[in-house]
Design a protein around this nucleic acid. Sequence first.
DNA 1: GATTGATTCTTTACAATGGAAAGATGGGGC
DNA 2: GCCCCATCTTTCCATTGTAAAGAATCAATC
Lengths: 205, 205
Amino acid sequence: MTETSAPRARYHHGNLRVALLEAAEAELVDKGLEAFSLRSVAARAGVTHTAPKPHFGNTEGLLTALCALGFRRLVEVQDHAKAAAAADPVAQLEAAGLGYIAFATSNQALFRLMFASNRPNFSDQDLSQAARRAFAALETDVAQARRSKGCDQDDDALAVASAWATAHGLADLLSSGRLRALSTMESNRRDEMAARVLSNSALSV
Amino acid sequence: MTETSAPRARYHHGNLRVALLEAAEAELVDKGLEAFSLRSVAARAGVTHTAPKPHFGNTEGLLTALCALGFRRLVEVQDHAKAAAAADPVAQLEAAGLGYIAFATSNQALFRLMFASNRPNFSDQDLSQAARRAFAALETDVAQARRSKGCDQDDDALAVASAWATAHGLADLLSSGRLRALSTMESNRRDEMAARVLSNSALSV
DNA sequence: GATTGATTCTTTACAATGGAAAGATGGGGC
DNA sequence: GCCCCATCTTTCCATTGTAAAGAATCAATC
């Protein structure tokens, strides 16, 4: 009777690819991107340090896959936040922004991998597609919020840039602990303030 | 007659500390933060790889000093931009924001060292002082712009967060080439758009 | 069910890196 | 002129990522 829950001692791991991705994320959480070690990741997964090669090629390959996973999760977090918010397009946009911030603050190292690293291969198909999807979602959120408020469609592109920059700036500064004014607030109030700043940036350019 | 401009072949370098900082920045520009190598920096300065130790301790020490230098240069760039702008407080704020963006786009790796790295020791006296100065300048710029427009002083703290987030977000996304909508514009027009977004974020929260 | 080929994983080896330790050098105070 | 000490070099070591070759296993075919 072979244990299906512990396929470890076997020579062939069975699902090493996903195990490595999980180990890599744990490594990222524990040590941060700058102390990320492929050998350590392999050890976490219980394999030797060259086992990742068939699955990811090299360290950059693993980080590229992890980065794509990050963009997909970013969209998930935003979708989850939107589902819990009011149907009003402005509330939806604010929820997306708050989701962006929540993702950044609870996945700091992954966020940096996605937005402040040269290690992932951004010309990789899977990654660039995942990143594009995240950007496309933002575009429609901004456009719908602006339509609901009767904003000029000609300024949509600028509003997208403005909203993204604001959300990204808040996310980055909050996740790195640099916005004391906001980060020390009680979380409901912080979200209220952030939402105000976000909708303003998208609607009144 | 000893050449003062080439104090290299001597055992004691003379001003190795500043030479290493210059070499470190060149290394940062050439290879980026993630491929930064202390040995390579030492080689650039014409010394062996352990020569930096008496001056900076370890790699983190060197990066910490470089990071502090970055914050001082950021303020310089902003001051320079403000000096070239109109005296109007809103124009001054916009100039500071555009300076922030200009710094980020022309010093990408240094910008990442300052805002997206755990390697510098941010509890270092010199560094934290330099960073605080940069933040203080921003605070006064925002406050003065708001006074000139009769904005409510109670919202100043939020406006500072909003303006900083917007400037930082624009800077980060532009420097990493992610804001095609803006980065493909002719530069005058781009600055005009960015200024509009920036002042809006500070004045109409 | 046995054989063969391809894939996965291990073993081994190597170059690059950061840092520790000890020695060589020479500047500066006395 | 002499000695102390900061500066720089030499040497050594642990860690890391990657390449190459071999062992183990799976899968397809006969």
